[in-house]
């Protein structure tokens, strides 16, 4: 392992979907060398991996498989690399989704992504307060009401991996963590100062790990 890089390489997995530029820029803002890539050599070299995603679960899984990003995600998670799934990128980590029945997800986390409660507008397209239910380093430094921007009609199932929820027609999973795998249903890269703190904390984890390893 080389000495701790002042600018840790973070691979933002690019499988051709949506706006990845904000995710990249928010990471760069906190000193990461963030690259949009599906190049195995770069991803394997990365100190952290981010899996973004917007759109439908099935369409995203198709694109993830077509570009080989599925194998890279599995590899990074198994190697213990800090990993962050965002929005549909979070949902893809699970085994399946009610959005696209019969379509397998990455299966990195157990369970099936569920439709958010009825009786409220779909999608939830708004800012909402995130209630931290289990300590996660990604919420460090965020005090009082934590407002994040959500755009989704489906969400991860309740489990002991849940680190935060929001209230939208009932409790909805906002973030999860298991070991090195972190995931947020909201868009931290679109959640102004609170979101930037969250991203900063993720980059901080990467730096701490890199420093320890060197």
């Amino acid at each position: 392992m080389t000495a701790a890089s002042p600018r840790p390489l973070v691979a933002v997995l690019d499988y051709g979907i949506g706006n990845l530029r904000s995710a990249q820029k928010s990471l760069e803002r906190h000193g990461a060398d963030a690259r949009l890539t599906a190049d195995p050599a770069i991803v394997r070299d990365a100190r952290a991996v981010v899996l973004p995603g917007v759109g439908a679960f099935g369409a995203c899984m198709d694109a993830v498989e077509r570009t080989g990003v599925d194998a890279l995600a599995h590899e990074a998670v198994e190697a213990g690399t800090p990993f962050l799934g965002i929005c549909v990128g979070m949902q893809l980590l699970f085994e399946a989704s009610e959005e696209t029945p019969g379509r397998a997800g990455l299966g990195i986390l157990p369970g099936t992504v569920e439709r958010i409660p009825d009786g409220v507008k779909h999608p939830q397209m708004q800012w909402n307060v995130v209630d931290v239910v289990r300590p996660s380093p990604l919420y460090d430094g965020l005090d009082g009401d934590i407002w994040m921007y959500f755009v989704h009609s489906f969400a991860a199932p309740m489990s002991d991996m849940v680190t935060a929820t929001c209230d939208y027609g009932g409790p909805v999973v906002a973030s999860v963590q298991r070991d090195n795998v972190h995931a947020a249903q909201f868009h931290p890269e679109k959640s102004s100062t609170a979101g930037l703190t969250f991203v900063d904390n993720f980059v901080g984890l990467v730096r701490a790990r890199t420093a320890t390893a060197s």
Binding site: N19, R21, S22, K25, Y149, H187, E189, K190, S191, L196
Partner: peptide, 11 residues
Amino acid sequence: ARRTAEEVFIP
């Protein structure tokens, strides 16, 4: 759009 994405972190 490019410059906004670099500097503005709301949708």
